[in-house]
Simulated scan of single mutants.
Amino acid sequence: MSKTLHSDEVVSNVFLFMIAGYETTSTALAYCTYILATKLDIQDKLIKEIHEIKWNNYNNEDIYDIATNLRSLDLFVREVLRMYPITSKGQIRKCNQTTNISGYIIEKDSIIQPDIFSIHYNPNLWGPEDPNLFIPERHEIKRHPIAWMPFGVGPRHCIGMKFALMELKMCLIQLLRQYRILPGDNIEQGFKRQEKIVIQPDAIYVKFEKHSI
């Protein structure tokens, strides 16, 4: 086996890094802005939490630690990713040997793909509140370890999960420190999702209003 990379391998991996590292995060951020613009009470709660921080006492290197400890922001991001998972294809696996799981025989070379939407909207996993409602506080309750899987689960889960979550939080912190996000014209009409490489809306129409403080 050659120890050098062929140009096709380099190109394909760079493409994968771009899709996995940027397209997914930008799509998740788009969903976040949609929720913030359409649920102003939730946005006000996040703004209040962020504005309670005495930013003059910190430098840019401290934002990581701050973002880690913003509880409402963490619950918000997790609920966004529950209701709007970025991809369903990332969880596809190939069975490398015939196995029996709870009485079900899975043949070697079978392709397995969990139905992430059925899992994320299962009332038995996410009740007693209606899973179709956006309720960040539902994540304060301990759930089944595989009830939330926007990044996959197990040893093959997304290696960039922690980085992606922190990237989202730090971006939202900087955004909400300066602006209030309001719904733009035709926001619902633009919010039509389709799955290509990722599951993304056609467009998110929002307006930004500078804070007066």
Rank of each mutant, 00 (worst) to 15 (best):
E61H: 12
K169R: 13
Y121H: 15
L165R: 14
A28W: 05
H6D: 11
Q189I: 01
Y34D: 00
E107P: 05
K192Y: 03
I146C: 09
C171S: 15
H157P: 00
N132R: 15
S7V: 11
G190I: 03
Q178V: 09
M149T: 11
Y205D: 07
Q97W: 03
M161H: 07
D44I: 02
I213D: 00
Q194L: 03
K207D: 07
E52F: 09
F151K: 14
R180V: 02
I159M: 00
L182R: 14
Y121V: 10
Y34W: 04
A28R: 07
S88D: 03
M18I: 13
N100Q: 11
F15Y: 12
Q200Y: 10
P114T: 10
E209W: 04
P150L: 05
Y58K: 07
F208S: 08
Y121W: 05
Q174I: 06
M149N: 12
K142Q: 10
Q174L: 12
N57P: 04
K192R: 08
K142E: 07
I204A: 12
H157Y: 02
Q113W: 01
I106F: 02
T27M: 09
S12Y: 00
H139R: 11
L16F: 08
V153F: 06
P155S: 10
N13E: 14
Q194P: 02
P183I: 04
I116P: 04
P155V: 09
I19R: 08
L182K: 14
R71F: 00
V80L: 12
T38K: 13
I50K: 05
P131A: 15
Y205K: 10
E209V: 00
I19K: 06
A30K: 09
L81Q: 14
C95P: 01
F15D: 05
K162L: 06
I197R: 01
L81F: 09
Y58E: 01
L75V: 14
F15I: 08
S26Y: 09
L176Y: 04
N100C: 11
V10E: 00
Y84D: 04
F191T: 05
I111T: 11
